[in-house]
Amino acid sequence: MAEAVHTTMEHPASAHAALQHHFENMEQQREAGTLGMWIFLVTEIMFFGGMFMAYILYRSYNADAFAAASNRLNVTMGFINTIVLICSSLTMALAVYYSQVGKRKMIVVMLILTMMLGTTFLVVKAFEYYDKYEKSEIPGRLFPSRPFNWYAEEEHGKQVTQEPARDAATERNPQAVPTGQEQKPDASFASRAEMFFFIYFAMTGIHALHMVIGIGMLIVLTIMAWRDRFSPEYHSPVELGGLYWHFVDIVWIFLFPLLYLLGAHGISGGH
């Protein structure tokens, strides 16, 4: 079974400079790194999985409120961000390709492009968050001056378009139908919409945190690429970074329809 090969502890002088002391050869090192990254991504799936679980449960409880609250999100901005992230996945994949064929300049260009697209995503996200702050749609009392208020726009006397989904909701919730008195109607409906916004901020916030970490990782990779550390023999850091970046993109691909498009069928009257 085992051949009597006794390897010595020191690597021969011909070994690659990036070979760490405890690995036998580059192949073993690469395999360990790749497996490690995939296992890490599994832990990430479990991490986001807890929140997806909560989303599934509460959406099934409060489909009406979730659809109405989803309509308050800016689908255009969400769509732009989706395109931006898909493009960043392309540039990241190209960076991995150029690291495999050993084109230093192109690796750097692609990594910088990826970073720029990632930053664009975060900037758009920041505008969306600020819009939610302005409209008092940040759940709870995180900003004591602007507690969550589902009816903030109506109270400010602005003309708001009546969301069809909300009408649908009140139809299905007889106790939530406005009574015509001065008191706030369907408070529970507003609270359940607040739950949507809590989930929205929790999930997109943690996703954005992953983007920030990813951009930090890209900076390190860019510096390494600039210093010509990668070659067709050794480029696994770029590959592992690519795996992580694609994972973060895929999370967004799930988040976008689940959070932004819930009310879409309501608008077209599909209820």
């Binding site: 909560a54 759940p139 709870g140 009392r141 995180l142 607040e194 809590f198 901020f201 929790a202």
Partner: peptide
């Protein structure tokens, strides 16, 4: 987060 926002999941 629930302790920070004062509402939560």
């Amino acid at each position: 987060l629930e302790r920070v926002f004062r509402v939560g999941i």
